[in-house]
């Protein structure tokens, strides 16, 4: 997968939320986007997955123009804002309902990814509304990665997670990266991004202020 963003600008409600973004993103790399609240991180993620259309500029996925040749990227897993699960269903049932849309994975794969993000087997069948904040976040991450998509977009993925869970998520994302996924993580926590990302993009007022590569560990 290769993403090419060219002069991307987005205006919402008269306000420029993204300004003249130019980026080339390639597979097998974890990109970290750092920025304060309102800096445009989430909007950039939404643009890349086709949820919002550019006011100016283009986003190309593998050479295909998003919004014209493609409505959404073919293979994408996303966690943006609240995961938005059905509160009266169990964590497992929520993932199963999502997985049934594509029909690519079954029970074994779903349970496997739930374990990988750190959810206990006892929690699989518990109703989502009984989940703690951390468990909800883990389920959101599981939903984004369970189908092993080519593009993974995560907005503040380690929010509400304890250290052990953060380590599990990091291990899971590194595995996905090795598989060849292009991963983009937005966070306001630079330390977390430094640890996770190969390349860090710093955003401010809708612009990419700087871009630098991290030393690999």
């Amino acid at each position: 997968m290769y993403i090419e963003i060219d002069s991307l600008t987005k205006i919402i409600g008269g306000q420029k939320v993204l300004q003249d973004i130019n980026l080339q993103l390639k597979k097998g790399v974890i990109y970290g986007i750092k920025g304060k609240n309102g800096s445009g991180k989430t909007m950039l993620l939404r643009s890349i997955c086709g949820l919002i259309k550019p006011t100016e500029g283009t986003v190309k996925i593998d050479g295909k123009l998003l919004g014209k040749d493609l409505t959404f990227p073919h293979s994408v897993g996303v966690l943006i804002e609240n995961p938005g699960f059905i509160v009266n269903l169990s964590g497992y049932d929520n993932l199963k309902m999502l997985a049934d849309i594509k029909g690519e994975i079954g029970k074994t794969e779903i349970e496997e990814v739930m374990e990988q993000v750190g959810l206990n087997r006892n929690d699989f069948r518990k109703k989502y509304k009984t989940y703690s904040l951390g468990m909800k976040q883990k389920l959101g991450i599981a939903a984004a990665v369970m189908e092993h998509p080519d593009l993974i977009l995560l907005d503040e993925p380690t929010n509400a997670l304890d250290e052990e869970s953060v380590n599990r998520v990091i291990a899971l994302l590194k595995k996905e990266k090795e598989r060849g996924a292009l991963i983009i993580i937005a966070s306001h926590d630079l330390e977390e991004l430094n640890y996770l990302s190969d390349t860090i993009l710093v955003m401010e007022e809708g612009r990419i202020k700087s871009q630098h590569e991290e030393e690999s560990d």
Binding site: L51, T71, V76, V78, I80, G84, L98, I101, K102, A143
Partner: peptide
């Protein structure tokens, strides 16, 4: 749409 919409739209690949 507001709660779960994007998860389904992205998986369906079209609107």
């Amino acid at each position: 749409y507001g709660e779960r919409g994007y998860q389904f739209l992205l998986r369906a690949g079209n609107k």
